[in-house]
Each structure stands twice: as C-alpha cells, then as structure tokens.
Amino acid sequence: MQTAKKIIIIGGGIGGAATALALHRAGLEPVVYERTKELQEVGAGIALWANATHILRNLDLLEDAIHVGYLTTNYQFNSQSGKELVNIAVDGFELPVIGIHRAELHQLLWRNVQEKFVLEQTFKRLEQQEEKIRAHFSSGLSVEGDALIGADGLRSRVRAALLGEQPPIYRNFKTWRGLTDYIPGGYRPGYIQEFLGRGKSFGFMMLGKERMYWYAAARAPLAQPDAPSGHKKELETMFQDWFASVPELILATDEANILTTDLYDRAPTQPWSKQNVTLLGDAAHPMLPTMGQGACTALEDAFVVAKCLREQADPITAFQQYESQRFPRTKLIVEQSLRAGKMGELDNPLSLLLRNTFMKLMGVTISNSFKSLHAYRA
C-alpha cells in the first residue's frame, strides 16, 4: 500500500478547517472543498473546554485563541429565579477554558491553510477507483485523492453516499443564539451562567472583545414557524419573568443578531468509515449542544485522524484506527448530551423541584463527571 498523500476534505467549517491544518502539519496534502462562496462562521459563541484547548496547543494556536477569546473559570447552573444549584470550577486544568466566537476560531484554523480551500463546490457523489477515491461536484468538477473525509455537517452528503439516507432525529427543542455588547450588571466575570426553567433554559458567557454571547432553548414541535413578531419579541415574552439578566440581555440584542435552529442528533452507530472514506464531527456523531462538546469533539477528531494517517501508510487502516479510537468517547458524549437535554424538557412543577433538589445534592458528582469529560487528551 502507498502512503496516503492527497486527502480530500468535504466541508470547510471548524472540523474541516482543523483537519486541513492538522494534516498539513503532519506532512500530508489536504484539499478542502466547501460549498459556500466565502469562508465565514455565523454569529455564535462556543466554549472551548480543556480537551479542545489541548488540540489548539498542539496546533500552536492556543496563545492566539487566548488573545481573541475570554478565559472562563466557572460553569454555574441556577434556577429560573437565579438561585444557584451547582457551581463547577473549570479552571483547575493545566489548560484554560476559552469563550470564543466561532468566526474567530475558524479564522485561526484556516488562515494557515487557506490556499488549500476550493470554494463554491457542492459535493455530489463519490467513486471508488482501485486504491483511489474520486469526488464529483455539482459544478462538473471531479477530483481524485488517496482518501476522503466528510466534514460536511449534520446533513452530510458524504454520510448519505457512504451509509444511505438516514435523517437525523429531532429532539423536540429549538434554540436561539444571540450576541451583544451589553454586559448585565449581575454578571460574574469568568462565569458561564445557565438558568433552568419549565421546558426552557437560558445561558450566557463572555467572549473576546467584550462581547456577551447568550443562548436559549425551549421545547417546540418540529419545524415550528417563527413568531410573526420576530425572535426578539417572542423571547422577551417567553423569558419576561426570569432572573433579571435574562430579559436584559434579550432586550439589548438586535433582532439581526439572533439566530434560531432546531436541535437534532443521531443515535451513535458504527461504522462511519468505509475503505478510504470516513466522517468527522457532526457528519459522524451529531450531538445536542447541552454539554458544549460539538466543536470540541470535532477538533479532537481532526487531531486523531491526522495522527492516524501520519502513522499508517494505508488510509483504510488509518481510518479504522481513527474510528475505533473516537467511537467510544463520542458515543458517551452524544448520550450524555441527550440525557442533559431530557432534564431540560421537564415541565411539571414537582419534576422541576425534584430536578433542582437533585442537582444541589449531586453537585460534587456532576462536577466530577464534567471534569472527567474535559480531562481527556486526544
């Protein structure tokens, strides 16, 4: 078998960009095919936990991420009215936790490999040719490589080509994400503060450049139409009687800076690789955002797949090794994220009281579980 040299990557988001950078640094030749006209991540923030900042350190990007992000010290869960349920210190690792805008992280990842990106190319199908793989695009472009990685998100076309059409599972929640320069008076610096109510939740955290990122989730039927009054008015009504910082943040955010998405995942299944083709990030293991691990696990995937391709001459063996290393961890996180989502579905006042009491009593256990998740080093 020959060494995998040219690696085709479908999708240029955070997972695809991180994979291109990791492969480039491993001495391989990645080329990323992205369907959009320009590389940009929409306005949302993410927490990069220590398991993800470990990857940034290995890619020599940690100092840059610290510079454009904001150091996070605590993750605090509260009742709807603001009573503390659990307070988890997250600054006890050898690596920092960083609040960062998705676009800032994306910029850090792709700036060193931007010449490896081919834009406005929508993947159509793939074709096995002996030891090579050929990707065809709707533009008529056709390219050949030694291996192909699908990093094309929740509704991955590479996944459909590999495993057949299997729709993701709607989990009865929609989410809103907002960005504002307003910092509420009660904000505790360094904190992610999350508030849990009846079938709803709201959280916020600082990003770099003195920006506040917030997110809300609520139970909703599939494809529920947006409120005619707009996202902002809808949220103002939904959260009007919550802890003061919550309605303040909604009020301070421009309508244009509020995004909404329905929440999906997939039951963890194998395989997600076939011969010299594999999947990565949301294409392989989409998860609910309740554990904040979507982008973090995509960064882990990128680092591990590059390591396997560097160590194994045969991409088929490399992808088998990559999947066997990544499946147990990502399965665990997908399932934990779903369990956390179900806790947020509770609507009955007694169930809420029991949940809040349980969280208070199990604070140490929750904290330890959280820390073990972030202590992982790919």
Rank of each mutant, 00 (worst) to 15 (best):
residue 238 M to R: 14
residue 152 D to W: 10
residue 160 A to Q: 09
residue 208 G to D: 04
residue 170 Y to V: 04
residue 224 Q to L: 10
residue 119 L to M: 12
residue 238 M to N: 02
residue 154 L to N: 12
residue 142 S to T: 08
residue 187 Y to D: 04
residue 221 P to M: 01
residue 226 D to M: 02
residue 146 D to F: 12
residue 116 K to T: 14
residue 188 R to S: 10
residue 146 D to T: 03
residue 241 D to P: 00
residue 145 G to E: 12
residue 149 I to D: 06
residue 124 K to N: 15
residue 118 V to N: 14
residue 142 S to M: 05
residue 121 Q to L: 09
residue 220 A to D: 00
residue 157 R to C: 04
residue 224 Q to F: 01
residue 216 A to Y: 12
residue 178 G to A: 14
residue 203 G to H: 06
residue 147 A to E: 07
residue 118 V to I: 11
residue 248 E to C: 04
residue 194 E to H: 12
residue 187 Y to A: 09
residue 199 G to A: 07
residue 225 P to W: 04
residue 214 W to A: 06
residue 217 A to F: 11
residue 171 R to F: 04
residue 220 A to K: 02
residue 193 Q to D: 11
residue 197 G to F: 10
residue 203 G to F: 13
residue 209 K to P: 05
residue 159 R to F: 03
residue 214 W to G: 06
residue 151 A to F: 12
residue 184 P to D: 03
residue 207 L to W: 03
residue 219 R to Y: 01
residue 237 T to F: 02
residue 180 T to P: 15
residue 243 F to Y: 13
residue 145 G to C: 10
residue 227 A to Q: 09
residue 167 P to A: 13
residue 203 G to C: 05
residue 165 E to P: 01
residue 217 A to P: 00
residue 144 E to W: 01
residue 124 K to I: 02
residue 188 R to Y: 05
residue 188 R to L: 13
residue 245 S to C: 05
residue 120 E to Q: 08
residue 197 G to R: 05
residue 140 G to M: 09
residue 174 K to Q: 09
residue 230 G to C: 02
residue 135 A to T: 14
residue 228 P to S: 06
residue 207 L to P: 07
residue 235 L to F: 09
residue 223 A to Y: 05
residue 185 G to L: 13
residue 145 G to R: 10
residue 229 S to H: 03
residue 123 F to D: 06
residue 210 E to A: 14
residue 199 G to H: 05
residue 194 E to P: 02
residue 127 E to T: 09
residue 122 T to S: 15
residue 175 T to R: 14
residue 237 T to Y: 06
residue 121 Q to D: 11
residue 123 F to V: 06
residue 205 M to F: 14
residue 232 K to F: 03
residue 126 L to N: 03
residue 227 A to K: 00
residue 116 K to A: 12
residue 146 D to L: 05
residue 231 H to S: 05
residue 201 S to F: 08
residue 162 L to Q: 00
residue 156 S to W: 02
residue 180 T to K: 15
residue 207 L to G: 03
residue 244 A to F: 07
residue 175 T to Q: 11
residue 206 M to P: 13
residue 148 L to K: 07
residue 223 A to F: 02
residue 229 S to L: 02
residue 185 G to R: 08
residue 240 Q to H: 13
residue 195 F to S: 08
residue 181 D to G: 14
residue 249 L to Y: 12
residue 117 F to Q: 11
residue 250 I to H: 04
residue 153 G to A: 07
residue 193 Q to V: 02
